[in-house]
Structures are given as C-alpha cells and as structure tokens.
C-alpha cells in the first residue's frame, strides 16, 4: 500500500475514500435510523438521469448529477411528507424513471462513447483533483448542518411526532436530510458507483448501531468502519487487480456477515 502511494491517482483515491467515509458515516447513520434506505436508493439511482442530462447539455457531469439528484430528492421528500402509506411506490417510480431517462439521453447523444460502468460501479482511481475540492466543500457543508441541527435531527429521527409538538422544524429537516442524501450520493458516486452507494450508506451504520449508545458515536463508529472498508478494499483491489468499488463493498459485506454470525453465537451462548 505504501509503495502504491507514490502514484498521484492512488493518493487522490485515498483522500476521496477518507472524505467519502466521513460523509457516509454521518448521512448513512441518519438514513438507517430514519428507515429511509429505500428512499436513499431511489435518489442514488435517479441520479443517473443527471449524468445523461449533463452529457446532452454539455455541462460538467458533477453539475448535472448534482442538480438532478437534488430535484429528485426534493420531489421524494414532498411525497413522503404527505402520504406515508404509498410513498414507497412513488419512490420506486422515480428510481426507475431517473435511470431510464439517463439511458435514453445517452442514446440520443449518438456516437458518444463513455464508460457507463464507471458510473454504475465507480472508479475511485480516476478521481481528479478538482473533484476532491468539490467533495471537500460539500463535506464541510454537511458537517456544519449536522452539528448545527444535531439535537433537532436526533429528536426528529427518534420521535417525529413528539419533535413536531416541541416545535422542532421537522418538515424543513426532512427536506434538508433528503438534500444531504443527494449531496452525499453525488460525492460517493465517483468512488463506488451509484449501484453500490447503498451498501456504503447502510452497512457501516448497521454494524455500528449495535455497539453504540448515542447517535453521535454511531456516526463516528460508522465513519471509522467505512474508512476501514475503503482502505482495505483499495489495498485488496490494488494488490490482486480487482475493480475497486466492488472490492470495497465486498469487504464491507464480509464484515457485516461476520458481525451477524458473532451475534448469533452470542445469543446461543447466552441462552444456554
């Protein structure tokens, strides 16, 4: 790993991984405790429409994907705010429409041969320096918002109705959370791709939840786990020449299953 760091792309990949881990630890925790994994998946996949849009309009891909996933996130936030019972269907529709739109727009742009796989499964090794700066700025924004609204987010996540009674601006926070998920998706899409984002948003918080007593420590532990998965995944993919995004996810999944098995064994031992 150390020798690999002499390459700039490897250093960039490592920095991208560290920032994405911090973001996924914070946002993933909020996604898991609010049980909006499906919604986060919807935003991540609808983002593909933004890639198509960026190529058609010939704007920077980051701008296209940023605008489009933010729009999708706010539409979903509006729907889930009003009618909770059928909102999952609606999310599913936006999920599919976003992806289909992306494919069609890239069809129209004839002769444009881009590597779609890199957006679906990520290519952390090709993250350019200016995107690192964009990631850094977005990370700061999310960090600041979560610190500022920490107790409001905690109250909303634990008991939405009670939080509303106490005068917490729950509707605003709902939109803000959706917006932050969209931002995180934009940042992490380069690394692990939109298909695999969900794993990085959910697996570390899920493991962390069982060993932590507060939302803030859950965020920190998730971020550290994320970092562990990203670095070891990167190292594995470098040393045995595998796709980096998929390797990171497989490392996370392996730890996830080991933690589940340890739980089962503990339950069996305790009941005996």
């Amino acid at each position: 790993m150390i020798e690999a760091l002499q390459f700039e792309f490897m250093r960039n990949a490592l920095i991208a991984g560290i920032m994405a881990s911090i973001i996924c630890g914070i946002i993933g925790t909020l996604v898991v405790v609010n049980r909006i994994v499906f919604l986060a998946g919807g935003i991540a996949h609808a983002a593909y429409g933004g890639i198509g849009l960026a190529f058609i309009l010939e704007i920077p891909y980051l701008v296209g994907i940023f605008g489009f996933s933010l729009l999708a996130a706010f539409i979903m936030a509006g729907v889930t705010l009003k009618s909770k019972d059928r909102s999952d269907t609606f999310i599913g529709v936006i999920w599919a429409v976003g992806m289909a739109l992306g494919v069609l727009l890239l069809d129209i742009k004839e002769g444009y041969n881009i590597d779609l796989m890199s957006y679906l499964f990520g290519s952390i090794l090709t993250v350019p320096r200016n995107e690192l700066w964009a990631m850094f700025l977005l990370a700061i924004c999310i960090f600041a918002a979560v610190i500022y609204f920490y107790y409001d987010l905690l109250a909303m996540s634990y008991d939405n109705e009670f939080a509303k009674l106490r005068g917490v601006p729950v509707n605003f926070l709902h939109f803000m959370l959706n917006g932050m998920i969209a931002l995180s998706v934009v940042m992490v899409i380069r690394m692990v791709g939109l298909i695999l984002i969900i794993a990085l948003l959910t697996i570390p918080p899920y493991i962390a939840e069982k060993y932590t007593g507060s939302l803030s420590t859950m965020m920190v532990v998730s971020a550290l786990l994320s970092l562990l998965f990203t670095i070891s995944g990167l190292w594995l993919s470098y040393s045995i020449n595998l796709t980096s995004g998929a390797t990171i996810i497989m490392v996370a999944a392996a730890v996830f299953f080991v933690s589940r098995i340890v739980d089962w064994i503990q339950i069996i031992v305790n009941t005996k």
Binding site: V33, I147, Y148, S157, R166, G167, G213, S214, L215, T217
Partner: peptide, 28 residues
C-alpha cells in the same frame, strides 16, 4: 415500543421534552 433499537439513552429521550420552538443551534 417503536424505535426500540435506536441508539439513545433514557436521559436523552427525556431531554427531548425540554425542546422549545426555535431555529437556533440547540445545546441543553
């Protein structure tokens, strides 16, 4: 019984009752 697995202590749950309507950064 809702949200039983949520990582929160008894004190933090009761502290929610001290929230007041405002848009400032909250610290108890």
């Amino acid at each position: 019984n809702a949200n039983k697995n949520f990582p929160i202590t008894v004190t933090d749950v009761v502290l929610m009752g001290r929230l007041t309507p405002k848009w400032k950064c909250r610290r108890y």
